[in-house]
């Protein structure tokens, strides 16, 4: 699943509309919208809210590890044109002075810049993007997913010459609209990578849990059984192997025998 994390409602509107996402009610502190493949969470401004929003989203959607996390939001820059879409290649947290480095599997046709994340609005523009969410978002998402499928996309909203009216939802929607196709192309590409690297293992994990749900086992038996089943299904044995009428011990013995372990 692909989780979008945005700070404000105006940053979410176009994505909700284009992807036809439905609202989850009640909101439980954050506004969540979703369909089968995507979710978007409106976290509120700031890195703490963003981090909390990621954590809530994770548990709201079954707590599955290695989903895709995308932060989209507005950011300032010294001289980049308003409406420019930027892929963040380094996130520097101004307060903690810690840096994070997203990983890119290929060269996208989206400009890359680093981003400094502040706890307060910053209008002292530099050649780094400035925002208020990216570090909280990334640190939090990286607890639940590997960093290669976590990214922050920023749209320049202000520079030292001009800024958009942050209260004007329409103008925010316009600059999102302008970049939507590129955003979706990028997200689809990350999804391709996810399918290649994680989908099979996720399916195996779900299959294993379903197969052993009615068995009784101790903690260590459970670990052993899951490991053996993981080896079994990764070794291209297509058939189900667990016999529900037999004990866990017998099932472990049977799998070991088949695998010759």
């Amino acid at each position: 699943m692909i989780h979008f994390i945005v700070a404000t409602s105006s940053e979410s509107k176009l994505i909700i509309k284009k992807l036809k996402l439905k609202k989850i009610k009640p909101s439980s502190g954050f506004d969540f919208f979703y369909n089968d493949n995507f979710s978007i969470t409106i976290t509120g401004l700031g890195k703490i809210n963003s981090a909390l929003g990621v954590a809530h989203t994770f548990f709201k959607f079954k707590g599955l590890s290695n989903n895709i996390w995308i932060n989209i939001g507005l950011a300032g820059h010294e001289k980049e044109k308003i409406g420019t879409l930027v892929l963040v290649d380094k996130i520097y947290d101004y307060e903690t002075q810690r840096s994070i480095y997203p990983f890119f599997i290929k060269n996208y046709k989206i400009k890359k810049l680093n981003c400094t994340c502040y706890s307060k609005p910053n209008f002292n523009y530099t050649n780094s993007l400035s925002d208020m969410e990216s570090s909280g978002f990334f640190f939090s998402a990286n607890k639940y997913s590997t960093k290669e499928i976590i990214h922050s996309l920023k749209i320049v909203s202000d520079n030292k010459f001009e800024k958009i009216d942050f209260n004007d939802t329409k103008s925010i929607e316009r600059i999102f609209e302008k970049n939507f196709d590129q955003i979706l192309y990028f997200v689809n590409d990350i999804e391709d990578l996810w399918e290649r690297k994680f989908q099979k293992q996720n399916k195996i994990k779900i299959k294993i849990e379903k197969e052993i749900e009615n068995l009784k086992y101790s903690f260590s038996e459970g670990m052993q059984l899951r490991n053996l089943l993981k080896i079994y299904y990764n070794s291209n044995y297509p058939k189900k192997i667990i016999e529900q009428n037999k004990s866990t011990k017998d099932n472990i013995y049977k799998i070991k025998k088949i695998l010759k372990l």
Partner: peptide, 29 residues
């Protein structure tokens, strides 16, 4: 190379947990 990024220490990029060795192996930096 396409992109050049400065860091304080290589360990900031190299050491953090929750990186995927296999994905990075496709095109290492």
């Amino acid at each position: 190379f396409k992109n050049l990024i400065y860091c304080n220490s290589y360990s900031e990029v190299f050491n953090p947990k929750n990186q995927n060795f296999r994905i990075q192996k496709i095109k290492p930096d």
